[in-house]
Design a protein around this nucleic acid. Structure first.
Lengths: 134, 134
DNA sequence: TCCTAAGTACTAAGTAGTTAGTAGTCATGG
DNA sequence: CCATGACTACTAACTACTTAGTACTTAGGA
């Protein structure tokens, strides 16, 4: 099992549901996806994807207490996985340079004024941290 | 042809070379990739990929002046394509919310102090622009 | 007890992405 | 004038991703 296996788009969609629920059975995930997405996946499709995620080491599996179903749990936090995916994206698309990506985001009308204030706070905090650490 | 066809990783790698060169033949791109990458692709692989990119509408093709080779030219600028790819990524991974992505980037040690200053300038410019536009 | 519902494992098949071989064209230098 | 080298088009094959069917298991109610 790789340390940080990358997730395909559909795998990510499933992981997001599991993160939100904390832990989940195949049934849980299937119900949520059925409710929230246009095209609905077959139950066995979700089953297969969760088995793959378990093989990849993204989910761990345990017997559910009261039913025969497996209960899955994320191995890494959403934050950790997002971080890997951002790194991979920055490397692939921006050759590792994060600043041009931020520039795109800032100029692209997807940030509100309060988002911008929040980012300033993060930047300031980072400055302070760097100062402290030398 | 879709307005903004998404690019696969290898297609993007080729597009980057063409953007850098302005226009390019298959030979040009192959030479650059051979020089800059570990594993080298066969000439015909690059040829096939560029044909696909032309079919997708990412490259346009014209006869080169003095040789029989095709000369390819990007249809959209790198900036435009990057922007689409960022949008797609933000949608897929962050459900459309750009701010959490910026938060990741800021906290992830990939931004230098001067990068942070540059981002502040961009944020300020955006504020000013929004004020002016109401 | 035995049928049904819910669950799993296994398997298959279709689509997309990647890589590269083969055959054919054509200009040109010997 | 024809062989060679550079080029293209076509085709194929392999890998990864996505989707879902089929067969099997088992708990629990009629």
């Amino acid at each position: 099992m790789a340390i940080a296996p990358s997730l395909t788009p559909q795998e990510l969609a499933i992981m997001k549901v599991v993160w939100r629920l904390g832990t989940a059975t195949v049934r849980d995930v299937h119900d949520v996806l059925r409710r929230e997405r246009r095209e609905d996946l077959a139950y066995t499709t979700v089953l297969t994807m969760m088995r793959i995620l378990e093989q990849k080491g993204a989910l761990s599996k345990a017997q559910d207490g009261d039913s025969r179903a497996h209960r899955y749990r994320p191995v890494r936090t959403q934050r950790q996985v997002m971080r890997s995916m951002v790194r991979e994206f920055v490397d692939r698309v921006f050759d590792g340079a994060a600043e041009p990506l931020v520039a795109h985001l800032v100029s692209d009308r997807r940030l509100s004024a309060s988002d911008r204030d929040e980012i300033r706070r993060l930047l300031d905090a980072k400055d302070a941290k760097d100062d402290k650490e030398g």
